Amino acid sequence: MQDRFTAETERFRRELLAHCYRMIGSAQEAEDLVQETYLRAWRSYSGFEGRASIRSWLYKIATNVCLKALQPRPIRVLPSGLAGPYDGPDRPPRSVAPGEVSWLEPLPDAWIAPPAADPAAVAVERESLRLALIACLQHLPARQRAILILREVLAFSTAETAEILGTTTAAVKSGLQRARARLGELEAEPERLLAPTDHRARALLDAYIAAFERSDAGLLEQVLRTDAKLEATPFRDWQAGRTMCIHMLDAYVLGTPGDWRMIATAANGQPAAVVYHREADGALRADGVVVLAPTAAGVSHVIKFHNPALAATFGFPDVFAP
């Protein structure tokens, strides 16, 4: 029975991971919730009677695992979810005390990438995992979040969604309407981002990396859009507008040539880089991950996640060795 269970369920693991990430906003937690989903599925597999598809049965388990996990937890946010952009006196950004805020985390594309032979699936997956969208989803009540994801991302019918959530079709329709309205308030005009594979997106990422490695604020000016936003966890302050972004980076971050090294990767369907910083002992140690929002007019949004453990999450070493 173990072999049959694996054959029937394992092919859904990547998409279930993406689903749990959309619900929870953390790659590591999503991975743990998928493990819990498969454990529960295995325990009840002998009683699975096939009245629903194996896929919808797994999504029912995964969604309810996520809803239970969300009950005692604060939502995960980005700095822009706490307050407006900083426009006070010139000073380094203020950090948030550990444990005060639960931060959103990036998701490596390699964890959930569908087969490259299906470009339509790639496009849908990429669009539904944009960091801006994931950040907005976290502000929806958990059940509304689940309804919106099941109906509009995963294309389950109203009846299937009601079955997955153990509710009525009327409740699903009402919840979807409220979720759409709230999402529209949070992200009124979703941006059209370039795919990470687009040569223009890669050129922007390469230029951003070069600007940091050379400590070149002038090159950053060519990369960022005039209305660009810059935010970084675990800092409360964030910047809006290219001038403010470059001033903060030039004054407090860029340092001198050689202080930074970055390795290109992809996260949330967007170009990204694993970041290393030169420490006092001369070693380049993992500093976190930066994710860019590339558009035809330049990078509109930069989000830096200051968490050295993310290097390992993305499959890179803790210390950069040329």
Rank of each mutant, 00 (worst) to 15 (best):
R91D: 05
H139G: 12
A296K: 10
G166N: 05
G84R: 06
A30K: 00
R4Q: 14
A195E: 11
A132N: 10
L183C: 06
D237Q: 06
L183R: 00
V153Y: 12
A69G: 06
A41N: 03
E189K: 12
V302L: 09
Y38H: 04
R242I: 07
Q239L: 08
R13M: 10
T169H: 07
P308M: 07
A203W: 03
P317F: 04
N307T: 08
K304I: 14
T63R: 03
E163N: 13
A264M: 05
V289C: 00
A27D: 05
D109K: 05
G298V: 06
I147E: 00
A309F: 09
Y21H: 02
R126M: 07
H19I: 04
G269S: 04
N64R: 13
H277L: 13
A251F: 09
A69Q: 09
L133R: 10
R40A: 07
G50Y: 02
A293S: 15
F212V: 02
L194H: 03
Q71C: 13
H139R: 15
E163W: 11
R145K: 11
R182C: 04
L176S: 10
L204C: 10
E105T: 09
A170S: 14
Y45P: 07
T168N: 00
A18I: 05
I164E: 02
G50V: 05
R145Q: 06
E31C: 05
A188N: 11
S56L: 11
E160D: 03
G258T: 10
A228T: 09
E127A: 15
K304H: 15
A69W: 07
A97P: 12
G218P: 10
P317C: 02
L220C: 06
Y45K: 06
D227M: 02
L67W: 03
Y45A: 11
P196T: 05
V34I: 04
P114D: 01
A228Q: 01
L17D: 02
D206Q: 10
V122P: 07
L82P: 01
A52L: 13
I164C: 09
A296Q: 13
A240N: 12
D318S: 15
V291W: 01
G288T: 02
F320Q: 06
P190N: 09
P190K: 07
D259H: 08
